[in-house]
Design a protein around this nucleic acid. Sequence first.
DNA 1: AGTAATGTGAAATTGAATATCAAAAGCAGA
DNA 2: TCTGCTTTTGATATTCAATTTCACATTACT
Lengths: 164, 164
Amino acid sequence: MTTIIAVDTLIFMFNTEDGMILEKKKAFNEFAQSKGLRSTRQRDIILDIFLSTHQHVSVEDLYLKVKASHPGIGYATVYRTLKLFSEAGLAREILLHDGQTRYEHVLAGEHHDHLVCTGCNAIIEFEDETIEKLQDEIAARHGFLIRRHKLELYGLCARCRNIG
Amino acid sequence: MTTIIAVDTLIFMFNTEDGMILEKKKAFNEFAQSKGLRSTRQRDIILDIFLSTHQHVSVEDLYLKVKASHPGIGYATVYRTLKLFSEAGLAREILLHDGQTRYEHVLAGEHHDHLVCTGCNAIIEFEDETIEKLQDEIAARHGFLIRRHKLELYGLCARCRNIG
DNA sequence: AGTAATGTGAAATTGAATATCAAAAGCAGA
DNA sequence: TCTGCTTTTGATATTCAATTTCACATTACT
């Protein structure tokens, strides 16, 4: 009986945004602990704010957001903390055409590529199983062991095609 | 009769490296003319040396090559000239994982992507018609008009897998 | 040749990423 | 809770490639 309630709760947690946030906080705490990192107010705040974002953020973006409510927190701390999130598996660095590193949220078991509008800078995520397979084949043909890949499509979104 | 000889010569030109080089020089001269650019000794030299390379070169790489035979030519000139080649359609800028812009030769009607060995920095070019098509489909599904794309596979080549 | 405009080279600037370091804060043990 | 050691922080400096600047040289045109 107790077990069943716990399972329900767990499913609930994973299916709501709040649950996701709690889960990620837990994951980060575990990472921090395993690495012998200390728990600091700044990191908690930055994690909260990062988790509250939905787009791909640059260090600058997040720094500005953080500074708005916590003016004492410096750029370097945001920079270092985002790197930590990345190591912890909560965030992923993405480098697009404009040479600005952005961080996106990592969702469990998910991989995707990017469709970027050069007009309005919108970033759309997509996934294509067939492309992934073809990539593996190409790599195999050349004797490569693929570690990661990067597929970005640049163009104009429906809206920008009409405006621009 | 005269016409037939001319056609033969043209085919010959396009099928040899020297012919390719002549063709590219001509293309650049036409571009320069259309843009009202002046013809300078430096640009001629840099074009010659660029056309003599076979790999993907960074500005630094080409600058060093140029300096070896023509010490008077500065970095900025090589930099600006490579940009010009790029505008003229002779070269294409490629940005790989290491944050160094490289220039590759543009061959008529050819498109390819890159397989990069993170062990020895070898760059292998490949082409996959199916992937291209899938990309177009994905773009269409999102109402995008694709201008360009970037597909890079990072991993270890056969040799580096064994060594490292 | 004269002259107006473009090109060149050295050096300066930019912009993002990253490193430095003194001061502040967290943590384990007394 | 206090101590002392270690990590973290925040401001600033450094790095590194890309790009711009500017005085001088060179080119195209008459």
